[in-house]
Structures are given as C-alpha cells and as structure tokens.
Simulated assay, not measured.
Amino acid sequence: MQAQSSFNEKDKGRLYLVPTPIGNLEDITLRAKRILTEADYIAAEDTRTSGILLEKIGVHNKMISFHKYNSKERAPELIKLLKEGNTIAEISDAGMPVISDPGYILVQECIKNDIPVVALPGPSAFATALIASGFDAQPFTYYGFLPRKSSEQKEYFEMMNQARATSIFYEAPHRLQKTLKTLAEVIKPDRKIVLARELTKIHEEYLRGTISEINEYFTKNDPRGEFVVLVSPNDDEEKQLSWDELIKQVADRVEAGESKKDAIKLVAKANKVSKNELYDKYHQN
C-alpha cells in the first residue's frame, strides 16, 4: 500500500493536473489560473493551442511540449525537473488532463518516483454532455475515441448494445456519418442516442432521437464541430417464460412435425434454459 500527501512536502517538486476550458474561457477556475501562473513549467499537449489560451488569461510561463508522440521520451526529462524541486502543471488541449490525453504516463512515473500528484477539478466534455443528455448518469462507460475501422468499431458497439449503462464516445465531424451507419448495423434503430456538439461554445447543440432518426438527419445536414455521442442503456426486459409456456412451445413444434428431441433443443436454446431440465419437465407433464 502506498500513501501520498499532496500538500505537506515542501522540498519536492509537484505535478499539478490542471483542466482547461473546453470552449468557454469563463470556465477557467481561479485556482487553475493561480497554479498555471505559479508553476515553473507548463507541460502542454499542443503548445500552439495552449499558447493562445494562456495568452488570453495572462499566463506567460515556459511551456514544454508533451503529447502522445513524445510522451515516453519527454517523461524522464519532466521527472528530472520535478526531482530538482520544480512544479509542473500538465494541461490538455481542452478539458481534463489524462482523459484522452497522454498525461497518465507522467502520472505513473511520478507515482513510481514518489512525486506528489495534485488533480484540480474542472471541465470535461463527456461529463458535461452526460448530465444534460437525459440518460441515467450512473452507471456510465466512457470509451474516448473509437477505432476508425468499422470492423473494430463493431466490437465496441456490441458491448454498448448489451450495456445496462449509458455509453459515451467522441467522434470527429468528418467520420461521424460513417460511424453512425456502423452503429445502426449493430444496435436496434429505435435505440435512443444523444449527440452533443461544440459544448460551451456559441453553437452548442444537443441532438436527441433514435439511431434511425439521427442517421436520417445527417443525410440532409453536414456534421460540424466535435461530437460527444451518448447511447442510452439497454433497458429491454427479457421475459422469462414459465415452464408451462415452454412446454406448450415444444408441444406446438412437435405437432407441426418436429421431433421431440429437436423441439426441446430449439426451445431451450431460444429461451436460454437447460435442455435437460426442459426435457424432464416436458415428460413429466
């Protein structure tokens, strides 16, 4: 067991995970702005994107590029700076660090090296969309960005099809229509979904409907902006038939010409009951 206190070590560097606005700059917190101002270095996913934000909120600290293509090589450099007593604020392009972001690699290295990690609360696109979706917020499953190939996406959609939880993933506008068509191949067309786009921005919009309705909408309207897609939980109630009802199904099949053996096997399989138990019940009747 490893215990960590984030606030009582004075002579050691500290990693701060600082959320940034997902659109509206007013969502920056006072604490986030203070930490960004006071940090010795800011590790940014995209220094150009983050530079625009930091300039607007009046922060001019030294930025270090830290993204998925250089994270494994850059992490040791950042750990060295932290061990020297520097504080580093890690930020994503938008929203919470670590979520759909390589920040977890740096967090893991900090934990290995007994360096305190402090997470600040703040904006997150999937959480924002979830609470306004109208779907049950707990439980939920967040998938991030799905694979681009339809064959690989189908594996995720099969899980969503069975899930009793709200399922959430991100999609880019140029891939959205293809992804929705793949979704419709796996999940029933009357299943409800919500698409949230451009959250907290001027053109924020929620599209609510069935999979077929949303697919129809995008045959006439081009997707614009980044999308959060939410799939409603599977709330189909599987009715468990009584033994008398199952026996009647067997009898009906036998009367129609099937053998008793085949009828019992097929009815048992269709209703997910024991073939041997159904056999016994049928012959006891």
Score class of each variant (00 low, 15 high):
222 D>Y: 08
263 A>M: 00
250 V>F: 03
175 R>E: 03
148 R>A: 15
180 L>F: 04
171 E>W: 01
248 K>S: 11
207 L>N: 09
238 E>Y: 13
241 L>Q: 14
197 R>Y: 12
215 N>A: 06
239 K>L: 05
162 Q>E: 13
266 L>R: 02
239 K>T: 11
239 K>D: 02
205 E>D: 14
265 K>L: 02
264 I>M: 01
210 T>M: 07
221 N>K: 11
203 H>M: 15
169 F>V: 00
167 S>K: 01
236 D>E: 13
201 K>C: 10
170 Y>T: 00
171 E>R: 01
201 K>H: 06
225 G>V: 13
237 E>I: 15
233 P>S: 08
205 E>C: 11
228 V>Y: 02
250 V>R: 04
224 R>A: 08
169 F>E: 02
163 A>D: 07
241 L>Y: 15
206 Y>N: 05
227 F>M: 06
150 S>N: 12
266 L>A: 03
236 D>L: 14
265 K>H: 05
251 A>S: 12
230 L>W: 08
231 V>S: 05
187 I>G: 09
262 D>Q: 07
160 M>C: 09
155 E>K: 14
261 K>H: 08
157 F>T: 09
172 A>R: 00
267 V>W: 10
226 E>A: 06
199 L>W: 03
205 E>I: 07
214 I>C: 06
267 V>Q: 09
227 F>C: 04
149 K>T: 15
250 V>P: 02
232 S>G: 06
244 D>N: 11
237 E>L: 14
165 A>S: 13
157 F>D: 06
260 K>P: 01
234 N>S: 13
219 T>I: 03
176 L>Y: 01
265 K>V: 02
159 M>P: 01
260 K>V: 07
246 L>W: 10
166 T>H: 08
171 E>S: 01
243 W>E: 11
165 A>G: 06
264 I>E: 03
167 S>E: 04
208 R>A: 11
254 V>P: 00
247 I>F: 12
241 L>C: 13
218 F>M: 02
147 P>M: 12
217 Y>V: 04
245 E>I: 12
152 E>H: 11
268 A>S: 05
181 K>S: 07
197 R>A: 12
251 A>P: 01
202 I>V: 14
262 D>P: 00
233 P>I: 10
182 T>D: 10
179 T>M: 09
167 S>R: 02
